[in-house]
């Protein structure tokens, strides 16, 4: 039997990834850049890596990919310290290496017939949205809006936007600088009262934008989301309210991250009833209407 009949084979690389930079942001957030050329060459928006955070801690931790450069061979991740693994990772220094597996998982898939891609990233759900935005920009023909929510300071210095976004309340002007550089519309939401940031839920900001669109414009919208579970549930409801297709990226505890252990499942409604699907290889991206019913 040839490998042609087994296209899954050899798609995940194990690399000894050298830390190129490791930057700390308020709220125990870190941006990590590692050299991992195989992963960088094959990653797609929604792909994640599974990494050994420290030689002392043997089980790996999954982290989404935020950006890659296939030509320079690096991979960026954004993570927040929440426990032992991420704490140990945060102590790792530039020049050290991490064992990293990737890229893993089914990516987000945007559709040209729906060029108004609405990207929602909450907290450490921001990274895949950055990747998707960059990907859509490269692909061309898309006019995405990126909304990000966080209850700790954003892991970047927000900048007043020069791009007009319909439906957004007056004064909500803070944007992610990277998006501005890419000429992609973005806005921020938080309950913490940060200047220029929408005070409320990211889904309320999204609803305001959707309402400001014409019926015809709305038929061109597709929603992509990653973030905490309640945010994804609210996003799925929003998608239903406006009859829009919606893809969400999910998280669950993992062991193997290659589909071997069935440890990372979520319940999904399929045509013939409920099924348990693996977040690592059947996801992490799922059709929201199958997960939140």
């Amino acid at each position: 039997m040839s490998n042609e009949s087994k296209p899954h084979r050899g798609t995940i690389h194990v690399e000894s990834a050298k830390i190129l930079s490791h930057e700390r942001f308020p709220g125990d957030q870190f941006v990590l850049r590692v050299a991992a050329p195989e992963c960088a060459a094959k990653a797609l928006p929604g792909s994640f890596v599974h990494l050994r955070t420290d030689p002392m801690l043997r089980m790996r931790r999954p982290l989404s990919i935020m950006r890659v450069s296939a030509t320079e061979g690096w991979v960026d991740m954004l993570y927040k310290v929440v426990g032992e693994g991420t704490r140990l990772l945060s102590a790792r220094q530039e020049g050290e290496t991490l064992s990293m597996m990737g890229p893993i998982g089914k990516p987000f898939v945007a559709h040209p017939e729906r060029p108004r891609a609405l990207l929602l990233g909450g907290g450490v759900g921001i990274p895949p949205m950055v990747f998707l935005a960059e990907h859509l920009r490269r692909t061309g023909g898309f006019d995405p809006l990126v909304l990000m929510g966080s209850e700790v300071p954003f892991p970047f210095r927000a900048r007043p936007s020069e791009i007009i976004v319909p439906g957004v309340p007056d004064g909500v002007i803070a944007a992610m600088p990277l998006m501005e550089d890419w000429n992609i519309a973005s806005r921020l939401a938080s309950l913490q009262g940060y200047p220029g940031v929408f005070e409320g839920y990211i889904t309320d900001l999204a609803r305001a934008w959707l309402k400001a669109l014409s019926e015809e414009q709305r038929t061109q919208v597709e929603i992509f989301a990653c973030g905490p579970h309640p945010m994804l549930a609210a996003t799925a409801m929003l998608a239903r309210e406006f009859s829009l297709p919606c893809q969400v990226s999910l998280e669950e505890f993992m062991a193997c991250a290659v589909g071997g252990c069935a440890g990372c499942v979520v319940e999904v409604q399929e045509d013939n009833g409920p099924a348990m699907r693996r977040v690592c290889v059947d996801g992490p991206v799922f059709d929201a209407s199958r997960v939140f019913v």
Binding site: V14, E38, G260, V281
Partner: peptide, 15 residues
């Protein structure tokens, strides 16, 4: 058993 699915899963890993 239980660590490698139904036999093909780990072949995803290059090498």
């Amino acid at each position: 058993s239980g660590c490698v699915g139904f036999g093909e899963e780990y072949t995803r890993v290059a090498g």
